[in-house]
């Protein structure tokens, strides 16, 4: 399904700020896998997602989806196979366009955009049903400008836009981190539902260890650009927050006690 082989990425090469963001990472996702990625700030989680999405190109390595080598395919071309939700609720939607127009834009991810009507009446019905099914209170506000929605509503819409066209890979980049706890919980539960419903192969980055444990069937932990811990489906079921902290200490030989960012619950 998704194959990453010996991916390397260094920022600011040849300057005093040189930073090895991704250090020889290999990772394979099978069809239907839902992998959560945890790690402290600067561990390389978001860089990894950006490399898969094509926002960045690796210095070395190979990235393939199914039997397609996408290592150096431009972002807008590979997004045909990849759906994404960003951390910033403002980032995933067009604020001055309506909900239905945003959903129509999402349809364009997999099919070529022509001169047909963006929001046809049949699509309108489809969008309404989608929003109703998702249990967010947006189905009677199709012509509302997205900029007027709350952060949680926008993130729910982003999640719908990234998933209803059934991408081969879904990338979630700390998509609940900018929300208050109640809304984050709501988005987390919607995430579980949609991934389940479409059986999406998913890679989710998070700061929240509880979330990382409650979602998905596999878990990886990153630090300084490397994958330092990996739990498969069997192991993950038994995993606790304490286990994760211990694993981090063991792998890196340093204490997590002062690393508040990883400890966030």
């Amino acid at each position: 399904m998704l194959n990453l082989k010996q991916i390397e990425k260094t920022f600011y090469k040849g300057t005093p700020d040189e930073k090895r963001a991704i250090d020889n990472v290999s990772l394979t996702l099978e069809e239907g896998d839902f992998v959560t990625v945890i790690g402290s700030n600067g561990a390389g989680k978001s860089t990894l997602l950006n490399l898969i999405a094509g926002v960045l190109f690796p210095d070395q390595g190979l990235m393939a989806v199914d039997d397609l080598n996408m290592t150096y395919l431009p972002e807008h071309k590979r997004s045909k196979w990849i759906g994404r939700v960003f951390q910033d609720p403002m980032a995933g939607t067009a604020p001055h366009m309506t909900i239905e127009e945003n959903l129509a834009l999402a349809l364009g991810r997999t099919k070529k955009r022509g001169l047909g009507r963006g929001v046809s009446s049949s699509r309108k019905k489809e969008f309404k049903k989608l929003l109703q099914d998702m249990n967010v209170n947006l189905h009677d506000r199709l012509t509302t400008q997205v900029g007027l929605l709350s952060g949680g509503e926008r993130q729910a819409l982003s999640l719908l836009m990234a998933t209803f066209t059934e991408p081969r890979i879904l990338l979630l980049d700390e998509h609940t981190a900018a929300l208050d706890p109640a809304r984050a919980e709501h988005i987390t539960s919607i995430t579980r539902d949609v991934v389940d419903q479409h059986q999406l192969t998913t890679l989710m980055v998070t700061h929240d260890m509880e979330q990382a444990l409650s979602l998905g069937n596999r878990l990886i932990m990153m630090d300084e650009g490397k994958i330092i811990f990996h739990a498969d489906a069997e192991e993950k079921k038994k995993l606790t927050v304490a286990d994760l902290l211990e694993a981090f200490q063991k792998a890196r030989g340093k204490s997590l006690a002062d690393d508040k960012t990883l400890l966030q619950k």
Partner: peptide
Amino acid sequence: QTESGIALRATGDNAKMIKSLSA
């Protein structure tokens, strides 16, 4: 209001987002 037209508008409104939607 066409598919291409709304993508054009999205380009000016949120380029990062429409890039992630194959435009």
